[in-house]
Design a protein around this nucleic acid. Structure first.
Length: 339
DNA sequence: TAGGCCATCTGGTCCT
DNA sequence: AGGACCAGATGGCCTA
């Protein structure tokens, strides 16, 4: 089931967490109701940790019964605890433990935020993105993996970018909604007799949906394709893929025929394949992506040109010029298919 | 209401 | 000792 995982509250305002239910355990690094969904951690005493109520409550008599705390030999119901004997929690130790725990929680939070940010970046360079339907974490990872595989296969000349095989590779192991999203994204522009998106709302995968793509359950054929909240693939992005594919095939011929196998390394790995808004935005914001000549080598052949090009069985109409040296200034282009 | 997804807390383990 | 990483647990939110 596809879900828009956009939450009401953004993660940016989440600060807080640690709302200790013990009165005297209130966390120093928090205030307010905290998480985006008002997360309230369970009471410590329900978690069965040593830090919980047990050790904390009896801190007055910690000096007397130093040696027979929770792992005493007379404990008949659980296996005897191994390892070094746990020290008694004195007040000072409790306080240190609490501070350490609070810091560890904060680190863990920030670590997970970093992980999520990376995931968000990954979503941004996926072949399809939707403002309304956000890919879940697991689906993002699966799609990324499939995308790499599919592009590799395409570059090796095994398939065209809109072949069924390409789509199947892309959708391998994805959930039905995600597969539909991908299929919808790949259905670019007004195809013959298809309004691509709008007419084919939300029936994908349903009983009245399109016939599923073999094995992967993709609502692929045009009638019945879901549309918004499904996303779209940048036309420029796809064109880039196609151009790349064309160039890849050429190189495949050059090197493959010569028995060389892989073409020579042409430089640092390129940033996202897209020459659409994604990439331009990144180029502007981050110098990390390097000189423009690393963009879309295949398209550089057509730098500054307009007109009709034929790649991988398509006729592509460049309605704007592509300037590899000023990709940020590139104007939108239009892709026209001739079937 | 069930199930999927998520954020967070927590304790354990490994490493520096 | 302390930080990074991990996996389990818990509870909230959302959709079908």
């Amino acid at each position: 089931m596809a879900k828009p995982y956009e939450r009401a509250g953004s993660r940016d305002e989440d600060v807080s967490p640690l709302q200790w239910t013990d009165g005297d355990m209130s966390s120093p690094d928090t205030e307010g109701p905290a998480t985006p969904h008002g997360y309230r951690p369970p009471a410590l005493e329900t978690r069965g940790s040593q830090v919980g109520s047990e050790d904390i409550e009896d801190d007055e008599e910690d000096d007397e019964e130093d040696d027979e705390d929770e792992d005493g030999a007379d404990d008949e119901d659980g296996p005897k605890r191994r390892g070094p004997k746990r020290k008694r929690m004195t007040k000072g130790r409790q306080e240190r433990f609490r501070v350490r725990r609070v810091k560890a929680n904060a680190r863990e939070r920030s670590r997970m935020h970093g992980l999520n940010d990376a995931l968000e970046n990954l979503r941004g360079i996926m072949p399809c993105h939707s403002k309304t339907q956000k890919l879940s974490k697991i689906e993002t990872l699966r799609l990324a993996r499939n995308y790499i595989c599919a592009l590799s296969e395409a570059l090796e000349g095994g398939q065209t970018l809109e072949s069924r095989a390409f789509l199947e590779t892309l959708c391998k192991g994805l959930s039905q909604p995600t597969s539909n999203l991908v299929a919808g994204c790949l259905q670019l522009g007004p195809g013959p007799g298809a309004g691509a998106g709008e007419q084919n709302q939300d029936r994908a995968g349903g009983p009245r949906g399109p016939p599923a793509l073999g094995g992967v359950g993709v609502g692929y054929s045009s009638p019945g394709l879901p549309s918004p909240p499904y996303g779209s693939l940048d036309s420029a992005h796809l064109m880039q893929l196609r151009a790349l594919k064309g160039a890849g095939a050429e190189r495949q011929n050059e090197y493959g025929a010569a028995g060389l196998g892989t073409p020579p390394y042409e430089g640092p790995p390129t940033p996202p394949l897209s020459i659409g808004s994604n990439l331009v935005a990144k180029q502007e914001s981050s110098p990390h992506y390097g000189p423009p000549q690393h963009y879309s080598p295949a398209l550089q052949e057509h730098a500054g040109q307009r007109g009709l090009y034929q790649t991988a069985g398509y006729e592509v109409h460049l309605d704007a010029t592509y300037d590899p040296y000023h990709p940020a200034h590139m104007t939108p282009m239009q892709v026209i298919y001739r079937h």
